[in-house]
Nucleic acid binder design. Sequence first.
DNA 1: CTGTTAGCGCGTTCAG
DNA 2: CTGAACGCGCTAACAG
Lengths: 342, 342
Amino acid sequence: MRPTVHDIAEAAGVSLATVDRVLNRRPGVRAETRARVEDAIGRIGFVRDMAAANLAKSRIYPLVFIIPNGDNSFMAGLRQEIEEAIQRSPLERTEIQRIDVPAFDARALAEALDSLLADPPVGVAVVAVDAPEVHAAIGRLREQGTVVVTLVSDLPGSARDHFAGVDNIAAGRTAGSLMGRFLGGRTGSVAVIAGSMLVGDHRDRLTGFSERLNEINPTLDILPVLESQDDPDAVYRLISKRLAADPEIAGIYNLGAGNRGLIRALTGLRESHGRPMVIAHELTQHTRHALLDDLIDAILNQDPGHEVRSAIRVLKAKADGVPVIDAQERIRIDIFLKDNLS
Amino acid sequence: MRPTVHDIAEAAGVSLATVDRVLNRRPGVRAETRARVEDAIGRIGFVRDMAAANLAKSRIYPLVFIIPNGDNSFMAGLRQEIEEAIQRSPLERTEIQRIDVPAFDARALAEALDSLLADPPVGVAVVAVDAPEVHAAIGRLREQGTVVVTLVSDLPGSARDHFAGVDNIAAGRTAGSLMGRFLGGRTGSVAVIAGSMLVGDHRDRLTGFSERLNEINPTLDILPVLESQDDPDAVYRLISKRLAADPEIAGIYNLGAGNRGLIRALTGLRESHGRPMVIAHELTQHTRHALLDDLIDAILNQDPGHEVRSAIRVLKAKADGVPVIDAQERIRIDIFLKDNLS
DNA sequence: CTGTTAGCGCGTTCAG
DNA sequence: CTGAACGCGCTAACAG
């Protein structure tokens, strides 16, 4: 049997209450007594049973997820995963609230964060927008003890405790690598379409993509990036126009959302000449079908289920000051071909 | 607050002990009383707090991992992950024993499984070898209540409760897909090397690879498969010989272990002519370096850490009869290029 | 067949 | 500043 609070009490010659005060860093213990207890804890290798502690406290972890309310499939998937976590809440001692805010709106996001200050939850997971007011709002939450995890979109340099998402420069490089290799020695031009160059993720992906594609095949001509605001219809319009202007286009990389528009544009194309090499992000029902139908060649993915579960584990662990298993919380850049659709 | 056993007792007009007997399907309750209690449970939507139950029972889950003692890097990694799980045991209420058996030895494996019958653990995770005696031994364990999970290598049709590993046909197809696309329209021959065609995993990978490569580029000539017994030296010899016989070889697929030998053979080659396209399995320190050094083009991987943690979660859940999160327990076929090395 | 009671490991009053 | 006693949700003797 592993040591319990009783063993500590005995070893240190104090009562259970004193041990508890030391364990929970509460006042009311003489420095000398505290030292004796801490020594005993270290000596007998005590690790507190969090399950028992939570039972005694009837503790539940109030958590909040703040995500953009856009209707693209990826965010819908993320929302779905949060809902499933809410279903599991009773068994995991969590109480999860989901707050939807307008997409790409730093002001609204900062306000949502500040609204939590009145009754601060234990932890907050937030799809960040890179702006000073968001930085500041996160700082305020942290200052009064709330754990903050950025989700999908990071805010480097802010006070957040952890990021549950992928390295988007690496994701871009991976896309560039696949594009370069799939195109072999071919020459021609490659179209790139993003949601908005104002978003850090998208900038990072473009950077990585351009760098890597240039390394592999410098003769390929990367066209100026198109911006869709992640709107499927805009993607459709922009890509169709591009294709009409240059029917010999060798590759298309959609580093943002709105893949439905891309797929629509490609479907029209199929009948006529051969289609370009196509790489996009996020495995959804649409992109899954497009892979199977040979309309898209590769999908880079971040698993939203993993991201949500990881965020919850990390928020709870940081709140309790216990370590996490790093490897388990690393969100991978998944590459899907039609052959390894999980 | 969610309902507790007390609420059930009150609602059904019985005592706590009776509720407990019903919950744990123990005898000593009249059918009529049992029905009343079960009705109450359903009516008030009771879900038992496993943490509290385990606390009361002082329950620990005795688990056993049986793995082959080969010294290839993948198995070493798996072993490492098991050791780390053993470190975490006290916090997870598990007590994990690791048993190493000779690789590819069905007799030894069956004996190891049978040795557990004397004092059966709650759950067993085993890297299976496809043989009738292993089937039978697993059946015996299951019959007296032990949960069995196959790990890495499955045993379809056996009594195992769950498989923690990847679909190796899909893995082979993925390798074929990458090889075909990376080689573009090139012609030539592709060498394939396996550990042993007696192992189900390796047969599956070969099947998938051949099928898919043929679909994509039927002009490529897939050479007869070489067998290395997963021994790096054998891999080195066989591949070197193949390369000497045909210096114009277009691609190499190692679907087994022993990548160190492959890498050595490729290193020698580098100085002379360009090297073939190379795809192999399992991300280890060696293959990681080879990717970074541009000696290998792609690595297909199954995450041993994920497999071990998943096996433990599933064993505990099945032992308690509680559901698992399917998506969380699905082991993905990871594709690694030098760009997305996690 | 059913109920009473103590206790798992820990946290929290409330006295001393 | 310290300790005794009770309770969290559940299980397990032991009575009846």
